[in-house]
Write a protein that binds this DNA or RNA. Structure first.
Lengths: 197, 197
DNA sequence: ACCTGAACACCGTTCAAGT
DNA sequence: ACCTGAACACCGTTCAAGT
């Protein structure tokens, strides 16, 4: 125990966990490498020992945010499973400040958020659609969920600044359900046609 | 003509148009106030005479991107109109590098992109849905369109760097149509129920 | 393996002052 | 009305060097 009273060296997991806490405290725009370093009581350059760059760190955070809730188990009703998966994903994103924005950004970088897509896809696959339909429907649903929750979280910020927003959280949740139902109903129409028994 | 050979003073419209050109040339991450100032042959601080901050500039760009194409005129077939509106919006976004990202960001700031929502909503309204349904469906569709095209444009960048992406532009366009159809079919199911003649 | 210290090449924004 | 010059308070990232 040479260096000092408190342990000083960090692991990659430490860094990610601290980043997640900092994200929740200050939001994505203020989650800088320098602030993260300060939170870890370390020089900014030390972070680059654990992550090659900020993008890689954010991709890791996205994975952790999505994995926050366990995947929903299949119930035998694929439409209900899709709704439950979408709702669970929304909850995961809402669990961290700017969670949707973080996952969105890594999805567009092609780095993370695969888990989110996979979960939606496997729920949809329960309806017996072909692979192309399943993948495209999952992508459409993911885009809707990320867009909706991003919007929702942005309004939460305005709200916390004191600006009152029309609708409120109930309206937001019901608009979310509506969007998911729209996509599920669209798929249902396809199931009737596709399942040419 | 006191100052010099070339006219030196700019209008707000000049600034926005130059910003749009710069966006197309270098992409959103490199569209900085300082580079824009350099492109206008002006000091960075001069920009703040035309726009209060970068957010306001981006909101203006978003409006211009969405207004790039005229709204589709009603054809008597609301479902076809919705598909045409979504497709026209996609074309507008694809017309500028990172167009979808620009519009997304201003939408989440509650500043612009109203025109995009309004166009989708008026096409949907042709189906005779109540106002809440129309608005929520338009929002869902807008989220899908923005998410899809953002993703699409990000892949274009990887493509231009030399990385070959699975699928290609045809697959992307057909996945877009599929997502729009899914939402339209979901709405159609609702039309049958709602129009309890 | 993990970190420091110092630097490089940038950002957005403000503000007094000029014409 | 539109702009300059200079500053303020930051960024992400690299790299030699330390332990």
């Amino acid at each position: 125990m040479a260096p000092s009273e408190t342990a000083r060296r960090h692991t990659r997991d430490d860094v990610a966990r601290t980043a997640l806490r900092l994200l929740d405290d200050v939001g994505l725009p203020d989650l800088t490498m320098r602030r993260l370093a300060a939170a870890l009581d370390v020089q900014p350059s030390a972070l680059y020992h654990h992550f090659p760059n900020k993008q890689a760190l954010l991709a890791d955070l996205a994975d952790r945010i999505v994995a926050g809730r366990p995947p929903v188990s299949s119930s035998g009703n694929w439409a209900a499973d899709v709704r439950a998966s979408a709702s669970a994903l929304r909850d995961s994103l809402l669990a961290y400040r700017d969670g949707a924005e973080v996952v969105s950004s890594t999805l567009s970088m092609g780095l993370g958020a695969d888990a989110a897509l996979d979960r939606l896809a496997s729920a949809i696959a329960g309806g017996g659609f072909d692979e192309a339909t399943t993948r495209q429907a999952a992508t459409a649903l993911l885009h809707f969920v990320l867009g909706h929750v991003s919007h929702e979280q942005q309004r939460l910020q305005y709200d916390s600044i004191g600006v009152t927003v029309e609708g409120g959280p109930d309206a937001s949740a019901s608009a979310f359900s509506f969007g998911v139902d729209l996509l599920v109903d669209g798929l249902r129409a396809r199931a009737r046609v596709g399942a040419a028994r």
